[in-house]
Design a protein around this nucleic acid. Structure first.
Lengths: 146, 146
DNA sequence: TGTTATTTGATTGCACACAATCTAATTGTT
DNA sequence: AACAATTAGATTGTGTGCAATCAAATAACA
């Protein structure tokens, strides 16, 4: 019965993969109102939290590399939400900052987490439980990338 | 302290998003040996399980639409692993089948789940626990897409 | 100091994801 | 039979993801 191991229904990884896409699908209509995609929203979250950040730092926060971030950040710049400037002390570093419009967008984003909790029918304790499990799994997998 | 809701570290969705990418990253080196990407591997799993399937059915199993599947299936056809044929009873339907090479690849894929369990340092009971949680979350989110 | 190594982003190329639109085929209704 | 509605895939366009490669700048050190 070794075939059972290969069955799609059995696979943890598939559940994770499908869950992740379903979740971003729940976000989509809310983010459309802000004119953001989900990864762009994550980027703005970091910037709202920290004011500004280097490309490298954004990559570390979101586990994304420059091949993904550079075009994404250029689109956010095009949208007038962020600025991109080379650091004067180290010309290799690009610092991403917020424009006024980018800062203002935060107000519109404030109620997204609440709307999503409602939409997903999750109670606060379930929510936290799941988050903790994902985060511990993430940490374990992160530890394996040597 | 409503800002806390917007903090990246707090977000269930981000944990899911990052976990999912980390997991496919764990698969990548194993799948490279088979010449498959992760979504291609999922497609082959369904075909190994069911022998053949319509594009529609593959989409339902994996929650993917034709815009994703059509080019992916063409690549699998190019690789000589699957066949694509219009159904004779309903010309709208495209049936995806396995070639001999596609069937043979299953043998090489047999030990991927085991390798991955080792790699991820998960015990069987943890594995099943997580899988169940993901699947119930997935089911709940699926129920919301009306 | 001069050279090597490392770091930081950018670029390129390929493969998803997915919305929107289109075409062809089938089904339903009258 | 005639025609509207539905269904299955294909196509197009935009936006990630990520490996591989590159160039410029900085750090390290013999």
């Amino acid at each position: 019965m070794s075939d059972e191991h290969l069955k799609l229904d059995n696979m943890l990884c598939f559940a994770l993969y499908a869950c992740s896409r379903e979740m971003t699908r729940l976000y989509r209509p809310l983010l459309d109102d802000l004119g953001l995609t989900y990864p762009q929203y994550l980027t703005m979250l970091v910037l709202w939290e920290e004011g500004e950040a280097t490309v490298k730092h954004l990559g570390e926060r979101m586990y994304l590399d420059s091949g993904t971030l550079t075009p994404l950040l250029k689109r956010l710049e095009q949208s007038g939400l962020v600025t991109r400037e080379r650091s004067r002390t180290d010309e290799r570093v690009v610092v991403i900052g917020l424009t006024d419009a980018g800062r203002d967008l935060k107000a519109q984003a404030q109620d997204i987490p609440k709307k999503l909790m409602c939409k997903s029918n999750l109670q606060m304790d379930e929510f936290n439980h799941l988050k903790n499990e994902f985060e511990s799994l993430l940490k374990r997998m992160q530890a394996l990338k040597d």
